[in-house]
């Protein structure tokens, strides 16, 4: 039974990931303290600026996740071994990316309501983000199409590469679409606003914390996906063995 020897993945808990998780929790606590208590209110935006300490890092991590998905997918397609582990990493990263992008959109529109007076602006960055959100939901749907693990890996790798190709295309076309209709009059979150030292530090610290959370989630999710794949192979082997034993006994 060749496929029964599919390596049993390690448990989803190792010392390294446990420490990474602890680091993520500690970082989140410090970030919450920085964001909610230690940093001052913004002169113009008041307390709503505190949303930025979650919004900007999640956006950054979501884009990082999608690029990571594309890199893993390319690695799977062109690597000599067509590693299934790279495929699972790509999937795990996209899942976490979609969640973070959802958080980005929600926090962004809450901030927009407070600062712009509206939940939504047809700002190029916002529009691109919303499109990517839907695109990667589509990618996750492709992963769930069924078939063998090899089929899933190849299929989703190609869709992932198409999706990452869309990031610049959608962004570029939305930018020129807006430029013809109206000049961006909204206050850009990262515009020419000069930032207080502690606020800037909190923002960068937030990016580091959320990147840690991302790494921790992807590692665990990857292991769970590996276990699911292993279980699927085992299931087939068990069914085959059961059928064979039926034949012998009859």
């Amino acid at each position: 039974m060749p496929s029964a020897t599919a390596s049993v993945p390690p448990p989803t808990r190792t010392a390294a990931t446990r420490n990474l998780g602890l680091l993520a929790i500690a970082g989140s606590v410090v970030l919450a303290l920085l964001g909610l208590i230690f940093t001052a209110e913004d002169v113009d935006q008041g307390s709503s600026v505190r949303i930025m300490y979650v919004h900007v890092p999640t956006a950054w991590v979501a884009y990082l996740a999608f690029v990571f998905t594309a890199v893993c997918s390319a690695g799977h397609l062109w690597g000599k071994k067509h590693s299934l582990n790279l495929d699972r990493l790509a999937g795990a990263s996209a899942e976490v990316g979609v969640i973070f992008m959802g958080v980005t959109l929600v926090t962004g529109s809450l901030w927009g309501r407070l600062s712009w007076g509206t939940y939504w602006q047809w700002d190029p960055r916002l529009t691109t983000t919303a499109f990517l959100f839907v695109t990667y939901i589509g990618y996750l749907a492709v992963r769930g199409l069924g078939g063998t693990q090899r089929q899933r890996a190849k299929r989703s790798a190609i869709v992932a590469l198409f999706a990452v190709l869309e990031i610049p295309l959608v962004h570029f076309s939305v930018v020129i679409w807006r430029s013809l209709h109206q000049q961006a009059t909204v206050l850009r979150p990262n515009g020419d606003v000069t930032m207080d030292g502690l606020m800037l530090f909190s923002l960068i610290f937030g990016v580091a914390v959320f990147t840690t959370i991302f790494a921790w989630l992807v590692l665990h999710r990857n292991r769970v996906l590996a276990m699911e794949d292993a279980m699927e192979l085992r299931g087939i082997d068990t069914a085959l063995a059961a059928r064979r034993s039926e034949e012998v006994s009859s």
């Binding site: 499109f131 589509g138 749907a141 198409f162 869309e166 959608v170 076309s173 939305v174």
Partner: peptide
């Protein structure tokens, strides 16, 4: 539709 419509936006 889920895959195609966002992709053809440009």
């Amino acid at each position: 539709p889920l895959l195609l419509l966002p992709a053809v936006a440009p």
